[in-house]
Lab assay of single mutants.
Amino acid sequence: KLLSSIEQACDICRLKKLKCSKEKPKCAKCLKNNWECRYSPKTKRSPLTRAHLTEVESRLERLE
């Protein structure tokens, strides 16, 4: 599967780190437990900047 097509777990399953069936409108866990089942939009991760990478590398060197 391509990364862009990976389905996201519902908010509660993601928060509780449960295996989500990803069914809509309610996944199996939410249906069974009568929880409100919501699927928040995916958040875009910002790409690493060179400055951040350099900072992490220098912190790693100090720890070694």
Rank of each mutant, 00 (worst) to 15 (best):
P25Y: 07
S46K: 00
T54V: 08
P25V: 01
R62Y: 02
C30I: 00
A9H: 01
E36M: 11
A9C: 01
W35A: 11
C13E: 01
N34S: 13
P41V: 08
C10S: 08
K42I: 08
K19L: 03
R50V: 11
T49E: 00
S46E: 14
I6V: 15
R45F: 07
H52I: 02
K17G: 02
I6K: 14
E23H: 07
L2S: 13
D11P: 10
C13W: 03
K32E: 02
L53F: 00
K24H: 12
K42L: 06
K42Y: 01
W35T: 11
K32S: 10
E64Q: 09
Q8F: 12
E57R: 00
L60T: 04
E36P: 08
K17S: 04
A9W: 02
K26L: 07
K26P: 00
I6M: 01
S40P: 01
A9E: 09
C37Y: 03
R50I: 04
R62M: 03
R14F: 09
L31W: 08
C10T: 09
C37G: 11
C10L: 00
L2W: 10
I12N: 15
L31Q: 14
L18S: 15
N34M: 08
I6W: 04
C37L: 00
L15N: 14
L60N: 14
E57V: 04
K24C: 13
K42V: 07
C37R: 03
Q8S: 12
S58M: 13
R45W: 00
L15I: 15
C37I: 00
R50G: 02
W35R: 13
R38E: 07
E55G: 08
K24Q: 13
R59F: 01
N33V: 02
N33D: 01
R45P: 04
E36S: 11
K32T: 03
R38Q: 13
A51M: 07
L60C: 13
D11S: 07
R59L: 06
R62N: 09
C30T: 04
N33H: 13
R45E: 13
C27M: 04
D11V: 05
C37V: 02
S40D: 02
S40E: 12
S58K: 15
C27Y: 08
K22P: 09
V56H: 07
D11M: 04
K32A: 08
K24Y: 06
L48E: 01
P25Q: 04
E55L: 12
S58W: 11
I12Y: 12
V56N: 04
K19P: 03
L18M: 10
R38C: 12
K29R: 15
K42C: 06
K22Q: 06
L2C: 14
L31T: 14
Q8D: 10
L15R: 15
T54N: 13
E64I: 00
C30A: 06
A28L: 14
E57F: 10
P25E: 06
L15G: 13
K19C: 03
Q8W: 15
S4F: 11
L15F: 12
P25G: 03
C30D: 02
I6P: 14
C27L: 02
T49H: 00
L53Q: 01
R38D: 04
L31K: 07
W35V: 10
R45G: 04
E61R: 14
L31P: 02
K19R: 12
K24M: 13
E55H: 13
P47Y: 06
L63I: 00
L63H: 06
C30L: 05
R38Y: 10
E55T: 11
P47S: 07
V56K: 00
I12A: 14
E57N: 06
L60R: 04
K29E: 03
C20L: 03
L48R: 02
E36C: 03
C20H: 07
N34T: 05
C13R: 03
T49A: 03
T54Q: 12
L48P: 01
K22I: 00
P41G: 00
S5V: 15
W35Q: 10
R50F: 06
K22M: 02
C27D: 09
K29I: 03
A28I: 14
E36R: 00
C30W: 05
L60F: 00
R50N: 11
R45A: 02
C13D: 09
A51N: 03
E55V: 08
S40R: 11
C37D: 01
K22H: 08
P41T: 04
C20D: 11
K24P: 04
Y39P: 06
K1E: 07
P47N: 04
N34K: 12
L63R: 11
C20Q: 06
Y39Q: 03
I12W: 12
K17W: 11
R38N: 03
E57Q: 08
A9T: 09
H52S: 07
K44D: 01
L18A: 12
N33F: 03
Q8L: 11
T54S: 12
S40G: 05
K42S: 01
R45K: 13
L31I: 12
L31M: 12
P25I: 00
K22R: 07
L48Y: 06
R38V: 13
T54L: 08
E23M: 09
N33Q: 11
I6C: 14
A51C: 06
V56P: 13
C37H: 00
P25F: 01
K42G: 05
K24G: 04
D11I: 04
C37T: 02
C20T: 01
K29D: 05
L63Q: 05
R59Q: 05
S4M: 12
D11K: 02
E23T: 10
L15V: 13
D11W: 01
K32Y: 07
Y39N: 00
L63A: 00
K16F: 04
E57T: 01
Q8A: 12
D11Y: 06
R45T: 05
K1H: 15
C27F: 02
N34L: 06
E23V: 09
S58Q: 13
S21V: 00
C37Q: 01
W35C: 04
I6L: 02
I6N: 15
L60I: 09
N34P: 02
L63S: 05
P47Q: 03
R59V: 04
S58Y: 02
T49Y: 07
T43I: 11
K16S: 10
K26V: 13
R62T: 09
L63V: 10
E7K: 15
T43V: 15
L48T: 07
R50L: 06
L63F: 03
S5M: 14
I12C: 14
C27T: 01
K17V: 02
K42F: 03
L15C: 12
N34A: 10
C30F: 04
P41K: 11
L31H: 11
L18T: 15
T49W: 01
H52C: 06
S46A: 09
A28W: 06
S4T: 14
K29T: 09
K1W: 13
E57M: 05
S21I: 00
S46M: 02
E23P: 04
D11Q: 11
C10N: 00
S4N: 15
